[in-house]
């Protein structure tokens, strides 16, 4: 392990997973945390609660298709929804750097409120701290969220079985590239917008349609490749996807080719990956396509027995390659 925390430890890839396993899990070890899902499922006897927390530090605060506030609500709602839970209440804590324009904060709160309305959740408690200039970068938001897990839901990254199909709800890379397009130094113009959206309604619809959904996750930091690798690792199965079947917008491909990024590693904020029993696959794709956040839903691959813990991609020339997790932070490159 490195002797200092590097940016790469926070980028959703292997270093972060190692950090969690080797440090956080060791210090806080308990069976609920050890599942390493994006939320904790709490069995309180009468009810099952889903509980999650997340922190938002996106730079820039405003980007095409959203802002840090919308992201905070959607991200929290989605983490809860991916456990099959119905999101209910959210807390929001703000760390504000002195000097932040009032109007910016107001705009961010407005879009939080709007996203919360759409998702049907209430922001019920919060906190605000102001730090000296330089003590934080403009604004950080921390959230927690709770939701109710219906009695019969059993969704976890460890439920995938050989033969199951992998469904992706739409195009990948939109959020990451939209945010990057506004970042200093990389400036490029695009009409592309972040896909940032609350997915709880979509999840409710597919859970209604099938009882054979094994795993659900939103491929945020680290992208689709990281989520698939997490499933393969947690379920101890192999996953094979076909590169050609993964929907990617032309703009995303263009930006990725220019900067040397892999679209499979770029963050999404309004997509989900579902692993489902083969017999329900077709029905679920149809249901997803009826929702505006799932209109490009498609089957991209399947779960296999071997190699356990690995994700393979079929390339366009008919060969297969390993699809690995993002290692370290993605840096723009020219080589």
């Amino acid at each position: 392990m490195e002797d200092k925390i590097l940016l790469a430890h926070g980028s959703g890839g292997k270093l972060m997973h190692d950090l969690i396993k080797q440090l956080f899990l060791k210090k806080f070890n308990n069976p609920i945390l050890a599942k390493l899902d994006d939320m904790a499922a709490l069995d309180l006897g009468e009810a099952k609660l889903a509980f999650t927390t997340d922190t938002y530090v996106v730079d820039p605060l405003f980007f095409p298709g959203g802002d840090i506030g919308k992201l905070a609500i959607c991200g929290t709602v989605n983490d809860l929804a991916m456990s099959g839970a119905i999101p209910k209440y959210i807390s929001a804590a703000f760390i504000v750097e002195e000097g932040l324009p009032f109007t910016e904060l107001e705009g961010i709160l407005e879009s939080m409120a709007e996203a919360a309305r759409e998702a049907g959740v209430a922001v019920v408690t919060g906190d605000t701290k102001v730090v000296e200039k330089g003590g934080a970068d403009k604004l950080f938001i921390n959230t927690a969220g709770v939701g109710i897990i219906p009695g019969d839901a059993d969704i976890s990254g460890s439920n995938a079985k050989p033969g199951d199909k992998v469904i992706l709800s739409g195009t990948i890379g939109d959020h990451g590239i939209a945010v990057m397009s506004h970042r200093e130094g990389l400036k490029f113009k695009t009409t592309l917008a972040s896909d940032c959206a609350p997915l709880n309604q979509l999840v409710a619809e597919i859970l209604q349609a099938s009882k054979k959904i094994r795993c659900l996750r939103d491929p945020t930091r680290g992208g689709l490749a990281s989520t698939l690798n997490e499933f393969a690792d947690q379920s101890q199965v192999g996953i094979v996807i076909e590169e050609q079947l993964v929907p990617i917008k032309e703009e995303i491909l263009g930006a990725c080719e220019m900067l040397g990024y892999d679209p499979f590693h770029i963050a999404n904020e309004g997509k989900l990956v579902a692993i489902v029993a083969p017999e329900d696959t077709e029905k679920l794709v149809t249901v997803m396509r009826e929702n505006k956040y799932g209109k490009d839903a498609t089957v991209i691959g399947e779960v296999v027995d071997e190699p356990k813990g690995k994700v393979m991609a079929k390339t366009i020339i008919g060969a297969t390659r390993i699809l690995d997790m993002l290692v370290g932070e993605q840096l723009p490159r020219i080589c």
């Binding site: 590239i177 397009s181 400036k187 490029f188 113009k189 695009t190 009409t191 592309l192 917008k249 032309e250 703009e251 491909l253 263009g254 930006a255 080719e257 220019m258």
Partner: peptide
């Protein structure tokens, strides 16, 4: 990428798969 506009000082807007730099 496709050159969509040539500006001053030998700088141009170039479109690469729908993004412009």
């Amino acid at each position: 990428g496709k050159v969509i506009k040539i500006k001053e000082n030998d700088i141009a807007d170039v479109e690469i798969g729908g993004i412009v730099r």
